[in-house]
C-alpha cells in the first residue's frame, strides 16, 4: 500500500497533493479471489473426504450400530463386524510407543537445551529430525530385518522367562514370542514419533525464561535441581501437549505397523506378545480382500473411527501446546 501511495503522490497543478485514483483495485480483487479459491478448495476436500467415508461406511454402521465399536468379533464370512480389537490394538501400541518415546524425547531435549555445547546443538537436532523424513515402509523393512529379531531374542524371551511365573504380570507375556506383535509395533512407533515429540518438547523447554533458571540457581540449586525445580514444572504443559501430538501420529501410522504387528489375532489381551491389529493395519490388510459390500463398508467404518480419534487427539494436543507453549504464558507481571 505504501508503495502504491508513493507512486501516485504526484502533485496536481497548483501544488496540491493528488490522492485520487482507483489504485490497482481490480488486480487486488482478482488475486484475493484466487487465494480464496485455493483456501476454500482445502475445506471442500476435507468435507468431501468426510462425506464419502460416511456414505461408504453407512451400510456397515447401520447394520452394527453401536456394536461396531463395542463388538469384539470381526468375522467377514458371517458378516459380523465389531471393531473393538482394532481400536484396542491402536491404543495399546500407541501407548507403548508413547511410554518409550516421551522420556527419551524429554531427556534428549533437556540435553540439547541445557547441556550440549553450542556447536553440538544443531547437529543433534538435525539428526533427530532426519528420523521424521524416513519413509514408513523403510522403518517397516528395518523393523523386519533388524528390530524384530533383536527384540524377540533380547527382550521378549528374557522378559517372558522373567515374568512368566509371576502372578498378574505374566498376563503381559502370554503366548509365544515371535517378534511380530504389539510390543514390536509399539517400539517401532516410539522411534517414529520421537522427532514429533522432541521438536515440540525442545521448543517448549527452550522458551522457559532464563530468569526462572537463574532464580533457582541463585538459591543454591545444582543444574539438575534447576531443571527439576524450575525448567520442567514451567514446561510441563507443553511437554504433555508434545506427547499427545506424538500419540496422534502413532495412532494413524500404518505401513510400518502393518509389517510388524502380526495381523493374526483379534483377541483382546494384555499380552505384549499378541500378534494383533491396529485400525490402520486392519484397513491396509483387508482393503484389497474385501469381497462383500458390507465388508468393504465395515473397513471404511474403521477408517471413520480412526479419523475421529486422530482428529480429536490432535485437536487436544494443539490446544494444550498453544496454551502452555511458553510465550502465551503469563508470569503475572
Amino acid at each position: 500500500m505504501a508503495v502504491q501511495t508513493a507512486r501516485r503522490a504526484e502533485k496536481l497543478p497548483g501544488g496540491r497533493v493528488n490522492l485520487a485514483g482507483r489504485g490497482s483495485a481490480l488486480g487486488d480483487r482478482a488475486f484475493q479471489g484466487i487465494a480464496f479459491a485455493f483456501a476454500a478448495s482445502i475445506l471442500v476436500l476435507i468435507v468431501t473426504i468426510f462425506v464419502v467415508l460416511f456414505v461408504d461406511a453407512r451400510v456397515a454402521l447401520a447394520q452394527e450400530g453401536l456394536r461396531f465399536i463395542t463388538g469384539q468379533v470381526w468375522n467377514p464370512n458371517e458378516s459380523i463386524f465389531g471393531a473393538l480389537p482394532y481400536i484396542y490394538g491402536t491404543i495399546f501400541t500407541s501407548l507403548i510407543g508413547l511410554l518409550i518415546a516421551t522420556p527419551i524425547a524429554v531427556g534428549a531435549s533437556l540435553y540439547i537445551v541445557e547441556y550440549a555445547p553450542n556447536w553440538l546443538r544443531a547437529p543433534i537436532s538435525f539428526i533427530v529430525e532426519l528420523l521424521a523424513v524416513i519413509p514408513s515402509v523403510i522403518y517397516g523393512f528395518w523393523g523386519l530385518a533388524v528390530l524384530a529379531p533383536f527384540l524377540r531374542d533380547r527382550v521378549e524371551r528374557p522378559l517372558k522367562a522373567a515374568l512368566g511365573d509371576v502372578p498378574v504380570l505374566n498376563a503381559l507375556v502370554e503366548g509365544p514370542a515371535r517378534g511380530r506383535d504389539m510390543f514390536v509395533a509399539g517400539v517401532i512407533l516410539s522411534i517414529m514419533i520421537l522427532p514429533t515429540i522432541m521438536s515440540v518438547a525442545r521448543e517448549v523447554i527452550s522458551t522457559v525464561p532464563g530468569t526462572q533458571r537463574e532464580g533457582m540457581l541463585a538459591l543454591g540449586a545444582t543444574k539438575w535441581e534447576m531443571i527439576k525445580g524450575a525448567v520442567l514444572p514451567y514446561a510441563r504443559g507443553g511437554i504433555v501437549g508434545a506427547a499427545i501430538l506424538g500419540l496422534g501420529r502413532a495412532i494413524g501410522e500404518t505401513m510400518a505397523v502393518t509389517m510388524l504387528i502380526g495381523n493374526s489375532s483379534t483377541k483382546i489381551s494384555w499380552s505384549l506378545l499378541t500378534p494383533g491389529y491396529t485400525m490402520a493395519s486392519a484397513i491396509a490388510n483387508q482393503f484389497a480382500d474385501a469381497n462383500s459390500a458390507v465388508h468393504f463398508s465395515a473397513i471404511i467404518g474403521v477408517a471413520v473411527v480412526l479419523l475421529f480419534v486422530t482428529g480429536a487427539v490432535n485437536l487436544v494436543a494443539r490446544l494444550i501446546v498453544s496454551r502452555f507453549g511458553g510465550d502465551t504464558r503469563a508470569t503475572g507481571i
Binding site: L219, G220, A221, A230
Partner: peptide
C-alpha cells in the same frame, strides 16, 4: 543470595512452595 531485576517467582509453585524452594534443595 540474589534478587533479580524482574520479579521471577516460580509460577507453577504456590506462595508457600516459592518461599521454601531453596530449602528443598541439596
Amino acid at each position: 543470595g540474589m534478587v533479580f531485576q524482574k520479579p521471577n517467582p516460580f509460577p507453577m509453585m504456590s506462595i508457600y512452595d516459592n518461599v521454601i524452594a531453596g530449602l528443598k534443595l541439596n
